[in-house]
Design a protein around this nucleic acid. Structure first.
Length: 586
RNA sequence: GCCGGAGUAACUCAGUGGUAGAGUAGCUGUUUUGUAAACAGCAAGUCGCGAGUUCGAAUCUCGCCUCCGGCUCCA
């Protein structure tokens, strides 16, 4: 049986149950989604406790073995019916369908009856009879508000989400997966491992990095500096605010103003906290005349930006109001743009596959739609930029899709979408090919013939925002960071007080010529079992147990995270092992 | 910002109109440990904030703040 038909049928069934229990409800749409379905209702006020009541009613209706029957009605007939039923959203949908189909000669509207229980507008795609529905394989999962037609200016409807599968095992597996996902939530690990926190006195969406989190952040940043040096970038730094003038030149004021913190008004003008780094870096490009020989010029910085995101969208480190991007701008000639873009993609591949072992990712090329207010109008520029990017994407060999309407106002955008082991998909990084900045900022170079030419600007940030990226990594690793990132790399645990001296000697040997190693001696105030348990819960990569046996043989007993006791090893041997592990970022 | 839900000790949570509780963490003492929780005691709260109803509010009402699930937006 087609799973989409099952899910779609459940959506009708949900609407039927809601209509019976809450007769004054109006109906929006009820499509199939990943893992289930939803239906949007107007004039419906319910709480989570009502869901089981609705589920019970759905089962009761289904047990009447009602046939799904599809008919084709003319638009006027459908409108008369839904007018009588006082269903304004359905009437609007009929009008929309009519507009879309104005060229078709005989326009008919699909209507589906769920027996005598419910009559709905519907393209079709459902089971033959409610008796075919697996009633133990669906569950209403949550209630949410959703704007009619996704437009924030339209009324907010009540959306009921349901999960539905072919059988109970699949549903149980899905629910189990959801539970597992919750256990990996970076906010939980952030607290448990003391990585980051928030303070209401500082403000929502403004994270504080605790010592443990700062280790992770700085290890990644230090390595990113090294990697970018190797890939031909130069580092720059720019201030956190700038005068309004800069953002007028960039075009951000008209396109982006509502996402920026309001300005500080001073005698010499308005100053804004920066919401993006590009205009600042452009000023560095402009600080001296550039020759074609200087290009490509790759300027990188960890740029901290502040964006006044809607309060309801903030979520842990995944969506914040102040964050640092691993940003860089590449200034190049048109004939270099494709190669440069390709290199940027290869840099992403390096980070994701080689360093973080994230194998499930793809690129999403975002092109403009017809919304004139959202995008700078320059069809030739857009076309050329899209071609350059497409060629680079093809050459990269990485998977990609194309979508409309998600581009930046100044150029097409390539988002890297990464999926964690629990299936959560995030935009990890955004890259743009900007053909507008050159004109706006007067970014040019002198070519071989002594003529001034505009540059292409590539905006890129493989690690996106460090905050979001680390949130992703926390969930990816479920708190168990690889050795090079682990805030605490090893605990040395003396079995009793008598062996504390030896523990110190071990620590000294391990840290010899390697003071950066993050070790801690866990003194004998607690029982051995307790300290081991604590180490496992804190996801410490190595617990080194020392007692009588170890002193005698001048060894340590290694307990590797999640792997239990690995037995005794010579200190030197272990030192070599971990140094390799750190160096190779295993 | 909008819809819905939540906020009690550092953390997880119990307490539905009548004297604020438990477990964990913390501190003190005893224990000196062989691979995931030793024992005892102590301390810890403006029950998110503010107003109202009431003889009396953690509990009821209203406003605000913060967080959570969504929508819109987005790195």
């Amino acid at each position: 049986m087609n799973i989409d038909h099952i899910r779609h049928s459940f959506a009708h069934l949900l609407a039927a149950a809601v209509q019976k229990l809450y007769p004054k409800t109006t109906f929006g749409i009820g499509p199939v989604i990943e893992n289930g379905f939803y239906y949007d209702f107007g004039n419906l006020k319910i709480g989570p406790e009502d869901l089981s009541k609705i589920e019970t009613e759905m089962r009761a209706i289904a047990k009447r073995n009602l046939p799904f029957k599809k008919e084709l009605w003319t638009a006027p007939k459908a409108k008369v019916y839904f007018k009588k039923e006082k269903q304004p959203y359905k009437i609007e949908l009929i009008d929309d369908l009519k507009k879309e189909a104005k060229k078709a000669k005989e326009f008919k509207i699909g209507i589906v009856c769920t027996g005598d229980a419910f009559l709905d507008l519907c393209k079709g795609g459902h089971v033959k009879n409610t008796s075919e529905l697996p009633l133990d394989a669906f569950k209403l999962t949550k209630i949410a508000g959703a704007y009619w037609k996704g437009d924030e200016k339209r009324p907010m409807l009540t959306r009921i989400y349901g999960a539905a599968f072919e059988n109970k095992e699949q549903l149980d597996h899905y629910l189990w997966q959801e539970e597992e996902a919750k256990k990996r939530d970076h906010r939980i690990w952030g607290e448990r491992l003391k990585l980051f926190t928030f303070a209401k006195e500082i403000g929502p969406g403004l994270p504080l990095w605790l010592p443990n989190g700062a280790v992770v952040l700085e290890e990644i940043e230090n390595y990113a500096k090294q990697v970018e040096r190797e890939w031909g970038y130069q580092r720059v730094r720019t201030p956190h605010l700038a005068k309004e003038e800069l953002y007028k030149i960039s075009g951000h004021i008209p396109y982006y103003k509502e996402s920026m913190y309001p300005p500080m008004m001073l005698d010499d003008g308005n100053y804004y906290l920066k919401a993006m780094n590009c205009p600042h870096t452009h000023m560095i490009y402009k600080s001296e005349p550039r020759s074609y020989r200087d290009l490509p010029l790759r300027l990188a910085e960890f740029g901290t930006v502040y964006r006044y995101e809607l309060s309801g969208t903030l979520a842990g480190l995944l969506r914040v109001r102040g964050f640092t991007q691993n940003d860089a701008h590449i200034y190049c000639r048109e004939d270099q743009a494709e190669d440069e873009f390709l290199k940027v993609m290869q840099l992403h591949e390096f980070w994701y596959k080689k360093i973080f072992h994230i194998t499930d990712f793809y690129m999403r090329l975002s092109l403009p739609n017809k919304d004139k207010k959202k995008y700078i109008q320059d069809s030739q520029g857009w076309g050329k930029a899209a071609t350059i990017i497409r060629n680079a994407m093809k050459r990269s060999g990485l998977p990609y899709v194309e979508v409309l309407g998600e581009a930046a106002f100044y150029g097409p955008k390539v988002d890297f979408q990464i999926k964690s082991v629990i299936g959560r998909e995030e935009t990890a990084s955004t890259n743009q090919l900007d053909f507008v900045a050159a004109k706006r900022f007067g970014l040019a170079y002198v070519d071989a013939g002594g003529k001034e030419k505009p540059v292409y600007v590539i905006h890129r940030a493989p690690l996106g925002s460090h905050e979001r990226f680390i949130a992703f990594l926390i969930e990816h690793y479920a708190g168990a960071f690889p050795l090079w990132l682990a805030p605490e790399q090893m605990w040395i645990i003396p079995i009793s007080e008598r062996f504390e001296e030896y523990a110190k000697a071990v620590e000294k040997q391990l840290k010899e010529n390697n003071q950066n190693l993050r070790t801690q001696i866990l003194a004998s105030g607690e029982t051995l079992g307790k300290r081991i348990r604590e180490g496992e819960l804190q996801k410490i990569p190595y617990l080194l147990i020392v007692g009588e046996k170890e002193v005698e043989t001048q060894t340590i007993s290694i307990r590797a995270r999640g792997k239990g006791d690995l037995g005794q090893t010579a200190i030197k041997e272990f030192k070599e092992k971990i140094e390799k592990e750190i160096k190779e970022r295993m």
